[in-house]
Structures are given as structure tokens and as C-alpha cells.
Nucleic acid binder design. Sequence first.
DNA 1: CGATTGATGGACCGTTCGGTCAAGAACTGC
DNA 2: GCAGTTCTTGACCGAACGGTCCATCAATCG
Lengths: 209, 209
Amino acid sequence: MDRSVKNCYPCHMARPRQFDEERVLHAVRDQFWNAGYAATSLQDLMRVSGLGKGSLYAAFGDKHQLFLRALRSYLDDSLGYLREKLDSAPRALDALRAFVMAPVSDPGGAAARRGCLMANSTCELATADPEVLAEAGRTYEGTTALVAECVVRAQKEGDVPADADPIETARALLAAQQGLVFMGRTGLDFDKLTATARSLAAQLLPGAG
Amino acid sequence: MDRSVKNCYPCHMARPRQFDEERVLHAVRDQFWNAGYAATSLQDLMRVSGLGKGSLYAAFGDKHQLFLRALRSYLDDSLGYLREKLDSAPRALDALRAFVMAPVSDPGGAAARRGCLMANSTCELATADPEVLAEAGRTYEGTTALVAECVVRAQKEGDVPADADPIETARALLAAQQGLVFMGRTGLDFDKLTATARSLAAQLLPGAG
DNA sequence: CGATTGATGGACCGTTCGGTCAAGAACTGC
DNA sequence: GCAGTTCTTGACCGAACGGTCCATCAATCG
């Protein structure tokens, strides 16, 4: 089943893949990100990946499975990046602040207008696609857990009141962050969005920037 | 052009409409709300409206125009409802708290999981559909203005510090609310969502509930 | 009643959709 | 070089898509 491991052919080597699976997933992910799931056609996917229909179907299954693969790849990257950011910050409070401000961390604001693939997909598909809904639930639970860990660290460092519930605090921070992601997607002016992000971070987290 | 005005026929009356335009817009809006724009076919629209293709096209133009009509009808209703809620509250602070908590005001949580038509549409279409993006911008600017007015009133009533910027406060409240709407759409447990809403309201607004 | 008008519903259009399949290409082991 | 295996390509499929058109219907006014 898993053809990503190269040296597992029965006895005769066959024709090797001429494409890099990760590269294709990346291109496909961008396409879904820009146009959404339903508005992306197989022709779009062929164009951005450079693959023929047959290759796409042989490698990934149908459109929906390919979408889920691309989505999961995106989530793995995002969660890994978040974990690294949260863990590597010298002071947990700074990491929490950066977490809330993440939607405005891109200088130009282009990323803010593009939003988040998982968020966009959830809004488009959550009602009708249980697998996407499940992925969303898992993702935001995972994110909450990571942030909550960071809250605990901030408490140990004396920056967050010890009586605050870490999970509850994390959920509030996550909700605020996702609200900012969404406001960015509505086209809200980047400077105003940044000001709002600062305001939210200041109100939800102790200490002055 | 405008056939909604009944008494403007040249000289002979013709066959009158056999459907209620508002009723159709309502049904169509629900369909788009449940399935999204791209995933809704003309057959779906015919089914939920009970109209034939010809009637739909004659009355509303193509699918995209019909969608915009339904979306605007939704927005008019929503903004009207919000204005009324904000104005009718005896105390502005209570209205602001209710505004933030709106995503969990539905007892069962079904509304929370359905999300907001404008928010869903923005996430699905904002990148590719300038008209939807413009509608989103207008909507959230309008909402910000309404909430800011209410903040001013709360300041006059002594419930919100006088030195707070009403617009900035309104944007933060709106972002928090939309974050909650989104978290509801991810399927987050309704009780947890409610707790998060309470937590956000408590941190962003003065006074104890 | 008959002329006129807009509403109606479904047949019909070309296009594009997601998905399948078979034939050929590329590669290794014998 | 041949056999065996997988990958690649593009033709092909039926279905569904959005959209147009027209014969028919219902209502009014002269």
C-alpha cells in the first residue's frame, strides 16, 4: 500500500515515480487554499501538480482523498511549527502573545487575507463532510492542548495568575486568534487588524508589551 | 426592470407571480447556508424553492446573482436584528455582553454548529469573489459601527471606562464573537464553547455577570 | 371575448465535471 | 535482451453542470 518507501518492490524494480509526493501535495494544497474545495476542479489539480489524471488517481485516490491528504500535510506542518514556536520562546508569555498575534505576523497582510486552510475548509465543508469536521475538531483540540501547556509554563514563570484554568485560557486565546484570522479574511485593513490583535492580546494576557 | 412593484404594467395585466419572493429567498438562503455556494446546484435551488429554472432565472438572474440576493437579505435581517437588540437593552453593557455571547445563545447548539452564512461565505469565496468580499467588508464595518455606538452608550452609563476607544473596543468584541462562531463550527462541545464565551466576555468587558 | 402581457415549467444546449481504462514507457532482475 | 512490474499519458465515459429557449398558461383590459 505505502509506495512512499522506495525499496520494497517484490523482486523486479518497476518504473519509478517521476514526481515528488510532497511537492505535489504542496501545490495541491495551495490550489485548495486559494479556490476552496468545491471550486477546484481536477483540471486545476492537474495543472498545478503537473500530473496527469491517472497519476493523481493512482497515487492519491479520488479528489476527496487527495484533499484530505493535502489538508493533513498542512496541519502537520502547522502544528509542528506551532509546537516549535511555543517551546522555543525564552518566556512562555511572549509565546502566547505571539500566538494571538500570529494572524498579523506577516508584514504585507497577504497571509491575513488568505486566511487559514483549515479554517476555510471548516467553514466551507463542516456541515456536509464529517471527515473534515473530525479533522477540525482534532486540530483545535491539539492546538488547545499545546497552548494550555504553554500557559502552564507561563504560570510557573509567574507571568500568568496561578488560579487561571490553563485549558480554558487556551481556548479563549485560540478563539481570539481565530477571530482575528477571520477578520483578516474579510479584507479588514491590515493596520486596523494589527491594532485589534494588540488590543485583544493586551486584554487576554497580563503584562504590558 | 423592477417587477416587485406590482402596478406598473403598460396597459394589459399579465399573469401574476405565483410565488412569494421572500419565501424563495429564505429557502435559497438556507440551502446555501447548509451546503455552501459551489456545492449547491441549480437542481437544489429548484427543489427548495419549488420553482422551475425559467422562473428562477427570470426573477433573479443567474446563480451568482441569486446567491447575492439571498446573502443580502440575510444581512439585512441580521443587522436589523442586531440594531434592535443593541438599542432595546436597558443597559448597554448587557447588550455588549449578549453580543459576544450570541454564538451560544441558541440552547441546543445547532445554530452554533451551523455558523453564520456571511462568515461561511467569506471563508469559501473571499479570495475569488470580489462582490462577496465587498459585502463582507461592508457588513463587518456596519457591525463595528453599531457596536461602537453601543460602547459609547455604555460609557455614558458609566459601565465602560471613558478613555476606551469605542471603535477599537467594538472591533475586539466583534473579533472575539467571530472567533466563537468559528469554534462552534468546528464542532467544539457546546458547554465548552459556552464557557469560553463567558470567559471572553468577562475579560473584554468590565463588571461581573 | 379576444388581444396582450408576464409567469411558468420543462425540453434542450454545449460544456465541464469526476472518474476509468488501456496502451505504452521506464526501470530492474534474470 | 527478455520478462515482470509500476508509472504515465491521454482518450474516453456517463452524469451533472449552468444556462437558454419556447410553447403554454393565467390574468387583465378594451
